[in-house]
């Protein structure tokens, strides 16, 4: 089943094109890794899909609901009601975690289910504690974000997103702000989610992770999708020259 469908997405900032001609789809249970050099538009793509940025042209459909279409070359977003419904299906994990500093870990996770989804507090709390158990932070329920390490913060951010039971979870370079040791504990959580067939799209610079976990890898450069395929195709037999150069540079550095 198709969860997300993107057609000919175009996005520019101040006349500078950031994304052009981007088309892709995400099927249920699929894990997609998006790789590519800095400034290739990976993060912007994620931000467009999660409604943090408005697109300039193209069509985005989420589970049959049209988020935005541009029949006459101009973007026309769905009414706020529909967008609200769509937003609830999408989760996002940021590079810098963006936890709410004034809330405890538990409240960070329960706040949206209670106040956005209308879940009774006791139910939200039970669910949050279960999620904390799962990410190995059951003892941190009453801690505040400033008391957590980067890796712990990111795991809480993942739990916070999961608490809304999204149909697809986006990760915007989830380990880029972490040192290698902490990167491992976050990737472990994402791997566990992949094993449960959580639908995910992960922008990452962790090539080994992309190779091992993703069902499909998308290589982006200069605001375009250059190549897409299984990890084997992309990492072992890239057809495009730019993909080859990019991966070569990576293996030289790492």
């Amino acid at each position: 089943m198709q969860i997300l469908h993107v057609e000919n997405l175009r996005k520019s900032f101040d006349g500078k094109t950031i994304l052009s001609n981007v088309s892709l789809e995400i099927s249920k249970g699929e894990v997609i890794a998006v790789i590519g050099p800095s400034g290739s538009g990976k993060s912007t793509l994620l931000r467009c899909l999660t409604l943090l940025e408005k697109i300039d042209q193209g069509k985005i459909t989420v589970e049959g609901d049209v988020m935005v279409d541009s029949p006459h070359g101009h973007p026309r977003y769905a009414p706020e009601e529909t967008l609200r419904k769509i937003r609830l299906k999408l989760g996002m994990v940021f590079q810098n975690f963006n936890l709410f500093p004034h809330f405890s870990v538990l409240q960070n996770i329960t706040e949206a289910p209670v106040h956005v989804a209308g879940v009774p507090y006791e139910v939200a709390k039970a669910n949050a504690l279960e999620l904390l158990e799962k990410i190995g932070l059951a003892d941190k329920a009453d801690a505040y974000p400033y008391q957590l390490s980067g890796g712990q913060s990111q795991r809480v951010a993942i739990a916070r997103a999961l608490a809304m039971k999204p149909d697809v979870l986006f990760f915007d370079e989830p380990t880029s702000a972490l040192d290698p040791e902490l990167t491992g504990e976050v990737l472990k959580v994402i791997r566990a989610l992949a094993a449960e067939h959580m639908t995910m799209m992960v922008v990452t610079h962790e090539m080994a992770f992309a190779r091992d976990v993703a069902d499909r890898v998308i290589f982006m450069d200069n605001g375009q999708i250059i190549e897409t395929g299984t990890p084997e195709q992309i990492f072992l037999n890239p057809t495009n020259e730019r993909t080859k150069t990019f991966l070569q540079r990576f293996s030289e550095n790492g």
């Binding site: 999660t50 409604l51 943090l52 609200r84 937003r87 609830l88 999408l90 989760g91 996002m92 940021f94 810098n96 963006n98 936890l99 709410f100 706040e111 949206a112 106040h115 956005v116 989804a117 916070r160 997103a161 809304m164």
Partner: peptide, 18 residues
């Protein structure tokens, strides 16, 4: 207040006033 706080709230579905 960092922009990221608004963004985190937005993707969680909070309204502007919330």
């Amino acid at each position: 207040i960092p922009q990221g706080q608004y963004e985190a709230a937005a993707v969680l579905g909070f309204t502007k006033s919330q």
